[in-house]
Write a protein that binds this DNA or RNA. Structure first.
Lengths: 354, 354
DNA sequence: ATGAAAGCGCTAACAC
DNA sequence: GTGTTAGCGCTTTCAT
């Protein structure tokens, strides 16, 4: 606003036409003679004119900008989604701005940035949002196109793109069971997005499916942070009967846990197996490399943008819930349960001895 | 814009005053009786009114929003800056939006998003920008407050906040020299932001200061990517006389290089020492942990926002260039040069033997 | 201390 | 095909 920009009035004057004609020539809406269009375009080029999006927005037209709202851009997973969304949005010739809220989204914080640029966005994508029920209700009541990514804390009338946390977790725990583990612990994350709860549900189901009882002391609380994983790991080691495998609701906590085990000279996966969730970069850098689960982030971003664009363009065929399977990424942090491994060794010894 | 928001007209009607009085009561500019103000505030609360920033912007007022432009939000360093900026901006009660351009900033790409929300921002911060000279010239000519972070590709009249790449690199290489290294290689990054060039300058100066000649075959080109570091590492191993230490222009390349050395069964730091730059999280996860250099990101973000705010508020005491020292983070990837280590061993053997 | 009018830059709706 | 009118929601004059 400090900069006096070239306005349509100036372009029109230079081209010797009315403002409206210039507007039409530029936007391509309505009839303009080729001759006039050429004159206007020449004027545009000469003056370096660009339409003032603000003014256009005030009229309520499309802005070709979508907003992405996140709570924690520093989170590796969130960042991966945002980067994927950036790429995807470009395919639709749209621009995208990111708002990093830090705070949980509630009515007070929310009004600020929703109304702040209310009218700026053609649509909004919320990635892994931590929002109050109030705030969600406001979003649901909003006529603006909105898509949520990886929000499963509760049912919602808004369209949601999800990675399958429940089945992913179930598969992971089932694979631990397949490796002979019976005492399997779980480290929770925070409940905001609902992902931790889904992962826990998968864990419980897999245990139930295998006919294994869960000692509730194995279910630790955590905050998705590495530190909380470390603390949970220590607490689990202090139990009189240790678990032989630990499934953490995300990789950071699994890595924190791994550090706790290392500090206590507990072999991974020799004595205790570890499985995380998310497949962040660090998962393949730690030693042993972490077995974990991965959401198809690029595909999910694609679906989110596509679904949003459908709503912006008022196309038919809207979907309310698009779910993608998680993939189990097997590395070295999970192995056979100690007693099984021991049995194998003794069996092979016998074989060798006979 | 889809959502019909509450306007000032409605608030004024409800409070039984004119629009202008309502505006004054809300903004706090100009005289309003306490009585009237109370009535207006009551109406605001009741209707859930929030000022439409767009409309305010059109009149050229402050928006209390600053924009941050980056080329690659997925970059760990960029992300760390953006997160630090987010925190910092909040202290000034401002909001912040991030634009992830992906492309290099040039006139074509630039016009789009500069003019796009030209008027939306009170100011702009460019973090590690990759911009054409044209684009930079446009920015320099702009009357809007702008601050660049870690841009040192060329001189500019814009205010810059910098980490000291030159002295950091010089210190790092000097420390390698102190460990007995004489054949020290350097892996370049891309030239866009100018950081690689500064780091190279520090490398050359340190070698010169130590009276060591540089074999130009030791100076490898890279792209700041892990893969390019791996390739550079392979190429260096193929030399008839290998360097005993490698200084990479960033951590990713150092880690790539480490992988190349591991694949060739070259001991780090036993046979070849490695030093990176940036201290990304991965640097302390790899084995051996990477010796590297670190910019004080939080302080730099603070300085950038402070400097921008000074300009927005038209305060005196502006600074053109704010530079912060880099810190050498010593870990295990750099050690004594082989011949020195050998000498020490033989000396200690002698001592032990005598 | 409050109000009325004008206009920021643009475009939808209606003339001509 | 092109021009005229009106108005988005707000704030900066200038009047009262």
């Amino acid at each position: 606003m400090k900069q006096k920009s070239v306005t349509l009035v100036q372009v029109a004057a230079k081209a010797g036409v009315s403002v409206m004609t210039a507007s039409r020539a530029i936007s391509g809406e309505g009839y303009v003679s080729d001759d006039t269009r050429a004159k206007v375009q020449a004027a545009v080029a000469e003056l370096g004119y660009a339409t003032n999006t603000l003014a256009r927005m005030m009229k309520g037209g499309r802005t070709n900008v979508i907003g992405v709202v996140v709570n924690d851009l520093a989170s590796v997973v969130v960042n991966a989604f945002v980067s994927a969304l950036t790429e995807e949005v470009r395919k639709y010739q749209m621009d995208m701005f990111i708002y990093n809220s830090i705070d949980d989204l509630d009515q007070q914080a929310g009004r600020r940035h929703r109304d702040l640029l209310h009218g700026l966005w053609d649509g909004l994508i919320y990635v892994l949002p931590r929002m109050s029920d109030d705030y969600l209700a406001t979003l649901e009541a909003s006529p603006s196109p909105i898509v949520l990514v990886n929000f499963c804390r509760r049912e919602t009338s808004l369209p949601v793109v999800l990675g399958d946390n429940y089945n992913g977790a179930r598969d992971a725990v089932a694979s631990l069971v397949g490796l002979g583990h019976q005492r399997i612990a779980f480290i929770r994350g925070t409940h905001f997005s609902g992902q931790s709860a889904e992962r826990e549900r998968g864990y419980r189901q897999a245990m139930h499916d295998a006919g294994l009882a869960i000692d509730e002391r194995w279910v630790m609380k955590g905050t998705f942070s590495e530190l909380s994983g470390l603390e949970a790991g220590r607490a689990l080691l202090a139990l009189d009967q240790r678990p032989t495998a630990i499934f953490a609701a995300n990789d950071e906590m699994a890595i924190g846990c791994m550090n706790a085990l290392r500090a206590a000279d507990v072999a991974v996966p020799g004595e205790i197996s570890l499985v995380g969730f998310d497949d962040v970069q660090a998962a393949s850098l730690v030693q042993p490399r972490l077995t974990t689960l991965r959401h198809p982030i690029a595909q999910m971003a694609q679906a989110a943008v596509q679904e949003l664009m459908r709503r912006i363009q008022q196309q038919p065929g809207l979907r309310q819930r698009i779910e993608f399977p998680s993939e189990l990424v097997i590395r070295e942090s999970a192995g056979a349960a100690p007693q099984v491994a021991a049995a194998r060794v003794s069996r092979s010894r016998k074989t060798a001895g006979s």
